[in-house]
Each structure stands twice: as structure tokens, then as C-alpha cells.
Design a binder for these strands. Structure first.
Lengths: 187, 187
DNA sequence: TTTTGAATCGACTAATCAGTCTACAAATCT
DNA sequence: AGATTTGTAGACTGATTAGTCGATTCAAAA
């Protein structure tokens, strides 16, 4: 249900990633999605609202994935390992969403309001890090710095993986990649 | 000399960073730069050529800065330290260029040709890494992975620094930041 | 001095875009 | 059933955009 709405969202995502916002007219989104422009504007009042919706739904989707299979009883390192691979597998499974998210999370198109709204959802990562710092497992540097560093590093690794998808299933590669990550944050 | 051309480039950079490509008409660039649209198109055949020029000149500027004061006689770690801070200080000194570069280096606006052309200039970084791997100083992981990881991490650190510019001159912060970087790549 | 071509200007145009309007059909409610 | 809301369509419009064109200025070469 709500198939038209979803078709519009899916099509817009693809077009935005491949051509950018400005080269993607609403008329083309509607046409490729197989609906009329009236329908598009029925679901989204403006083009900007469509973009923001796309961004928020993508972020929700990612955030939910990050938490999967994170076992409370495991060590902190094991938890980070799980989150790390959740992120990576999500990116590989949803390449368009991943590219959309990294390309546009710093874009002036994504309004400040939207950014803030999205930010709060990473709360549990912050808690994980704080705990790690208290226990002297992670580096005692400003937490915001650590978060940005992690996110940047992850982006780099994912970028590499996107260009070398065959590595994804090599165990050695996986261990290497996580070692980069863990060495960065561990104290 | 060529002041008009430079005015156009400077103005375009500012507008692109603050408003994005699509919300920045050539007419506004010309107006803000204090020239006529005809003049803009005299120097740049198309808007896209203007964008690509901006990207390439920015990349040149960055690349040149990276090499400054890298002393051949120093240890590998010291060389990396120098490059690391060259990047960071460049970013702080040229915030608009920095934001333009990171925001748009993955953008569909930057044509593939331009990307490739720009890529070759990081040659010396690759050589530095290879040497480090041969000497068992750096991690023995695929070199492209290491490069992407470094770049991602650096982006994250810079992003944090942009939001906390007062930290820039704290020695502790500098050491913390470089430690993140070095721990990531060292073997 | 004369000639030439680059630099500059801004009015203009053809194309395109975001969003509107009207109409009708399907679903949901009373 | 009848009434009201929601979904869908696509032609249309007013505004905006990238890029053009012919006129003018200016500096340097011949």
C-alpha cells in the first residue's frame, strides 16, 4: 500500500544520486515513477519536502540497522564490532541510500531542522563511547571528536568497499577493516 | 590581473558552499561579483566549466599545501605528521575551499574526467605509504583502503575542528588528533 | 596612426522548472 | 445510498534559468 508514494521516493533517490538535485526535475521523477506530477505534489507539498523526507527515512532505516544483533552481554569491543559491520552491510545492501546519505548529509539542501532531528537518534552510540572511556578502553579525547573520526573513517572504508565489492566476503579483509576502526578508537 | 575572472571564481565558491549549485544561478554569481553575465560566459563557456575549474584549482591549491615543509631527512612518522597538519591548517585557513572540496568531490557535478585528473596528484602520498608498508611501519592492508581510511578520518577530524575552532591551538588537542590518525595507519 | 582582438556589458530568448488547477475516480464514512 | 474525503491525472502557468548576441571600450601590436 501507498505504492505510489514509495515509487516516487525510490525513483527520486535513484535520480538524485545519479544526477544530483538540480538536474532532477519533479517532472522526471513523476514520469520515471509512472505517476502524474499532481500525484507527486499530493504526497509532498514541495520538492524540498520530498528531499527531506527521503533523508529522514534513510537515516531511520540506517539507525535501526545499526542496533541489530547488538548483544548486551558481549564485551564493548564485540558490540562495536557488531555495529561496525551492521553499518558496512547496510551500506552494501543499500548503495543508493548510502550514497545519498553521505553525499547530502552536509548539503545545504538538507535543512538545519532536519539535521538536528536526525542527530538525536545516534544517542546509543554516544552512551557506548562514554562507557568505553570510563572503563579506559577507548581514547580519552573529546567525544564529539571521536564520533566524527569514527564516522569519517567508516565513510572511507565504505567508499573503498563500494569500489571493490568482491572483498566484502573475504574474512581477512573484514578483519583488516575492523582493525583500522578499532585501533583508531581504542585507548 | 585577471581580477574579474578571480572575482567570479571567489564569488561562485562562496555561493556554491552556502546555497548549493542548483540554488546559485549564473546571474547571481555575476551580479555579486560585480560583472555582467556576458563576462562570466566569456571566461567560462558553461556553468559546468566554471564548477570544474573551481574544483581543479582548489585541489591544486590543497595538494601544493600538503607538501610544504615535508623534510626528506625526517622519519616517516614525522613526515606523516607534517602532511597531517598541513591538511588541517589548510582546511582551517580556507574553510570555503575545504567545504567545497569535501562536499562536491563525490558529487555528480564533478565529472569523471575531472576526478581522474585530480587523483594523480596524490602520487607522493601513495609512495610514502608504500615505503611505510615495506618497512613494516604501516599496516599491511590494501593501499587503496588505507588511503580512503586516512582521507575519511581526516575529513571527520576537520569537520569536528570546524565546529570547535578554538581547539585548533591547544597542543593537547593537536596531539590527540594526530594520535587518532597515526594509530589508524600504523602497523 | 591604424588595425585587431580581447574584455565588458546587459538586453534578450528559448527552454525548463516548481507548483496550480480542474476534473474525475475510488475508497471510506454516516 | 448518499456524502465526504483521499488519490490520481495531466494540461497549464508564471517565474526563472543558462546561455546568446551585437554594441562598445580599450590596450597593444603593426
Amino acid at each position: 500500500m501507498n505504492t505510489k508514494r514509495d515509487q516516487i521516493l525510490d525513483t527520486a533517490l535513484k535520480l538524485f544520486v545519479n544526477n544530483g538535485f538540480h538536474a532532477t526535475p519533479t517532472s522526471k521523477i513523476a514520469k520515471d515513477a509512472g505517476v502524474a506530477t499532481g500525484t507527486l505534489f499530493h504526497y509532498f507539498k514541495t520538492k524540498e519536502e520530498l528531499i527531506n523526507t527521503l533523508y529522514l527515512e534513510t537515516k531511520d532505516n540506517l539507525t535501526n540497522s545499526l542496533l541489530e544483533n547488538v548483544n548486551v552481554q558481549e564485551t564493548l569491543k564485540a558490540k562495536f564490532r557488531q555495529v561496525f559491520f551492521n553499518y558496512i552491510f547496510w551500506a552494501v545492501d543499500h548503495p543508493n541510500h548510502q550514497q545519498f546519505y553521505t553525499s547530502y548529509s552536509n548539503s545545504p539542501f538538507i535543512t538545519n531542522l532536519t539535521k538536528e532531528h536526525g542527530l538525536q537518534r545516534f544517542q546509543f552510540i554516544y552512551e557506548l563511547i562514554e562507557k568505553g572511556q570510563d572503563e579506559d578502553i577507548l581514547k580519552a579525547v573529546p567525544i564529539d571528536l571521536l564520533v566524527e573520526a569514527m564516522q569519517g573513517l567508516l565513510n572511507g572504508i565504505i567508499k573503498h568497499l563500494m569500489e571493490n565489492p568482491e572483498k566484502m566476503n573475504e574474512e581477512k579483509y573484514q578483519n583488516d577493516a575492523f582493525k583500522l576502526f578499532w585501533d583508531t578508537i581504542k585507548g
